[in-house]
């Protein structure tokens, strides 16, 4: 078992406390279930790798590296970055790497863009690019793997050698390559053209040209354009309107018109609004309560909506959403990378 660092580390950075003193006041007057159950969430995330007697643990192995990224991101934002042991984290990530530079979801799983991006993000968060160089196959090889997945004709990216294409993979490539300082390995202009071709009359973006606007894909396209420094291509007003209409009566956000609300869209929609400077176009207080009421305050974790089963995916994006909403006590999250701002500052120097 891991040492329990939760009690040990209760520090909060002073500037945050000051900045949010007014908000803290209003948040502490919320009922118990509408307080962030920080220590329950930390314990929940810590427990995820000790559930080997649960069938689901084995059924979800294809998401292990993604899961580690979701869990670690949540812990960093909760102010408990050390709640998962650093050395073991790095060892596990490196054990997923293939000769071609790509990472699989877990040892024995094939390399894929999604797990490769998670690997790079995790290594960035725990400041372990050096380990990748000395004990792994090195940044350059990772970059080469990702670049090999670009479709040089259309600019978009495949998830792996079998060819499924999606703007998720394009964003993933930009995310990881920019963290590694290797964005020059791919044809950025072509990729940007591809994103522009995915735009719809409603201001949103889809999986591929012709596809319906979808909040998840909007996040990937807007974030990729932000990384490429091409935000001028976004129809800010129209997109902002569409995104703000995702908020429905209960305060939660949905992913498309006339769909149910879901905590994970607290991230996809809100971060997109942040990138185009329009988060004030929705009701932040209501969204905050919606996320908080989706917590399991007792056993930890956040679900898609109140009363449902929790999972680490919704826990991560719920907490990331709360961080963007300036919930007191949380580390600020970077809206483009979905990682702590402090990590992005250290890696990219901005």
């Amino acid at each position: 078992m891991q040492p329990n660092p939760i009690q040990a580390s209760t520090h909060r950075t002073t500037h945050k406390t000051l900045k949010f003193s007014n908000m803290t006041q209003s948040f502490t007057s919320l009922p118990q279930e509408l307080q962030l159950a920080t220590s329950a969430h930390v314990k929940y995330i810590q427990s995820l790798d000790s559930r080997k007697d649960e069938y689901d643990y084995w059924l979800t192995e294809h998401l292990r590296l993604n899961g580690l990224y979701w869990g670690l991101t949540a812990l960093h934002l909760l102010g408990h970055p050390e709640a998962l042991p650093r050395a073991e984290t790095i060892d596990f990530v490196l054990s997923c790497q293939h000769e071609n530079g790509g990472f699989g979801a877990a040892p024995g799983h094939d390399a894929h863009m999604l797990s490769t991006v998670s690997a790079v993000q995790i290594l960035a968060m725990v400041d372990a690019f050096d380990d990748l160089e000395t004990r792994g196959r090195g940044k350059a090889q990772v970059g080469k793997y990702i670049a090999s997945l670009q479709n040089r004709q259309t600019g978009t990216f495949a998830g792996d050698e079998w060819g499924e294409e999606d703007t998720r993979f394009l964003y993933g490539a930009f995310n990881a390559l920019s963290l590694l300082g290797l964005l020059h390995l791919v044809d950025v202009d072509k990729a940007v053209d591809h994103i522009a071709a995915c735009a719809n009359f409603d201001g949103g973006y889809g999986v591929s040209p012709g596809a319906e606007s979808h909040s998840g894909q909007i996040f990937t396209c807007v974030a990729a354009l932000t990384i490429a420094g091409r935000k001028e291509l976004i129809d800010v007003d129209r997109l902002g309107r569409w995104l703000s209409e995702r908020q429905i009566a209960g305060g939660g956000l949905n992913g498309r018109p006339e769909k149910k609300e879901d905590v994970c869209y607290s991230w996809w929609v809100l971060s997109s609004l942040e990138m185009i400077g329009k988060t004030h176009w929705i009701d932040k207080a209501k969204l905050t309560s919606f996320i908080l009421s989706s917590q399991d305050t007792d056993k930890g974790g956040i679900s898609d909506r109140p009363g449902d089963m929790v999972d680490v995916w919704h826990t991560c994006f719920g907490i990331a959403g709360l961080s963007l909403l300036d919930y007191p006590g949380l580390e600020p999250v970077d809206e483009v990378y979905c990682m702590p701002k402090s990590t992005i500052k250290r890696v990219l120097g901005r």
């Binding site: 998401l63 999604l114 998720r168 993933g172 149910k260 879901d262 898609d304 449902d308």
Partner: peptide, 17 residues
């Protein structure tokens, strides 16, 4: 990343014991 596989959607929370 935007991969929703493996996450729980619309499944009621039950006692985890």
């Amino acid at each position: 990343m935007a991969d929703q596989g493996g996450s729980n959607h619309g499944i009621a929370r039950t006692s985890r014991t």
